[in-house]
Amino acid sequence: MAGGIFVVPLLTLFAGASFPTAVAVSLVSVIACSCASAPQFLSARLVNLRLAAVLELATVAGSVVGVLLVGSIAPGILYGLFAVVLLVSAAQMLRPRRSAQPLGSGWGERLRLASSAPDAGGVDQRYHVGSLPIGLSLMFGAGTLSALLGIGSGVLKIPAMDAALRLPLKVSSATANLMIGVTATGTAAAYLILGKVDLVLAGPVVLGSVLGAVLGARAMVRVNGSVLRVAFVLVLAALAVPMGLTAFGIEIGPLR
């Protein structure tokens, strides 16, 4: 998770930033987070670069559609959509993971996407990639949401890689983490050229994201996964409530 899902609500609800400003700053922080944690995952041989390139075609195409939709969607609907994404993310955290490995689909074999990654014991395990068309469709949606809401869209990438592509969990996390940078880049570059990135706000947010990403990637192996999951669900649900209320025009005074 790149943190955009926390950055946008925190900037809009607590820092008084407008939704477009929060989205622009969040996209830069998402890229910074992706870049900061990538070396750790690449060194551990958990990233499937070919798969990342293929799936990025869908996420970037989705982000083009997202950019086209930005101006035509009312802010209230964007707040509501964000609240839904937060709740779906929370539900995803509680869902049990699939572990069964596919034998490999036609597309996966043709694109030579099968690879290997070390398991918990450090032994290389070969894995195949499941249904690529479904995975690409979900990635397209993830790219659209990323451009619209300024998030990394882990909410769609996790089910895509877990349920459709059936990748090992660490491989999906590491590969998705690398992909979010490219997904956000096109939109972030446009915002930067147009001067829509609040540079004063972006500095501390980016530094925080980099620090969090580096510490998070190192701590991932030591922290108790279930405790972390419950904490994440509570925070996501707590942020979904004010975002949902704002969607209906109800603003919670002390937060703004």
């Binding site: 390139a53 075609l57 970037v60 195409a61 950019v67 939109t187 915002y191």
Partner: peptide, 25 residues
């Protein structure tokens, strides 16, 4: 060759996303 095409298409899409963002925003 296959992945040269895929990464080239990715770069073209990234450029398209930026241009569309500039035109729409």
């Amino acid at each position: 060759v296959l992945y040269v095409w895929i990464t080239t298409a990715l770069l073209v899409l990234l450029a398209a996303a930026t241009v569309v963002g500039l035109l729409v925003s």
